[in-house]
């Protein structure tokens, strides 16, 4: 077995790993659909969206490697960190669930991520700003795709409405964490995340209204992903994801 790597996490490295992990873990969840989607066209779309996210993760791991300066590469970060070192939002690791779970989560995350990368395209760090502009365009497509499905499901049949509402109820506790502020020392490089909330609230309200769905009250929002405090599902995901890589220390693939 390959040993776990230590990561020297400056606030910048931690920020970059967090965003990379969001994209990787969510991309992985989408890749779990391959061969099992409800419609052939959705096989293609889910794979496309997953590929965008995995591509984003790879670019962000490369930034993190440069910022850390310890000679790590994308695969070291993806395959050789333990669960507690993963910095992804909890929303990303929630199980794939049914098609409603997948699309509701995707829409809520994509609306957020489009706003986040749009804001990050103004970063004082030029490379990050360039990446962010491209990522924002990808997320805009994901918003359209997943948003359209949320409306179809919410306003489709009684069953699809019930499933979409149940999916929304299940994912709601994980939304607040998206708006937690990044380290203040990163001001200028990283957008003011809490400031994205009103715009997101407005966009989500409009979407849910069209879909005839309602966001439930959340008495106990869940957070802790950025600090490495995960639920029970990430460990299983990583066991599957990392097993082969870790079983052959030092091998090239």
């Amino acid at each position: 077995m390959s040993a776990t790597i230590p990561v020297a996490e400056t606030p910048l490295v931690r920020f970059l790993l967090g965003r990379a992990d969001d994209a990787l873990i969510l991309g992985h969840r989408l890749s779990e659909w391959t061969g099992h989607a409800p419609i052939l066209e959705e096989e293609l779309a889910l794979a496309n969206i997953g590929l965008d996210l995995i591509g984003q993760a790879r670019a962000l791991y490369a930034f993190a490697a440069e910022a850390e300066g310890a000679g790590h590469d994308e695969d070291d970060y993806a395959y050789l960190r333990d669960e507690g070192q993963f910095r992804n939002l909890l929303i990303a690791e929630r199980p794939r669930g049914d098609f409603a779970d997948t699309m509701v989560r995707q829409a809520l995350y994509a609306i957020y991520a489009e706003m986040f990368w749009q804001a990050a395209s103004q970063s004082t760090q030029r490379e990050l700003a360039g990446f962010a502009a491209k990522a924002a365009k990808e997320m805009a497509y994901h918003v359209r795709h997943a948003g359209t499905w949320v409306v179809r499901l919410g306003d489709g049949t009684a069953e699809s409405h019930a499933r979409a509402q149940a999916a929304l109820d299940r994912i709601a506790p994980y939304l607040d964490e998206m708006f937690d502020a990044e380290d203040p020392s990163l001001a200028g490089i990283v957008p003011d995340v809490p400031a994205l909330r009103p715009g997101w609230d407005g966009a989500v309200r409009a979407l849910l209204e069209e879909a005839k769905l309602s966001l439930p009250d959340v008495p106990f929002p869940q957070r802790g992903g950025r600090a490495g405090r995960h639920g029970e599902t990430l460990g299983h995901l990583l066991a599957t994801f990392q097993h082969l890589h870790r079983s052959h220390p030092g091998a090239t693939w």
């Binding site: 890749s31 794979a47 590929l51 994308e74 082969l244």
Partner: peptide, 16 residues
């Protein structure tokens, strides 16, 4: 379970 991110992306694209 693909053993690297490059292989994972390539395989997902291939199956797509």
């Amino acid at each position: 379970r693909a053993p690297s991110l490059k292989r994972k992306a390539a395989l997902l694209a291939k199956v797509q």
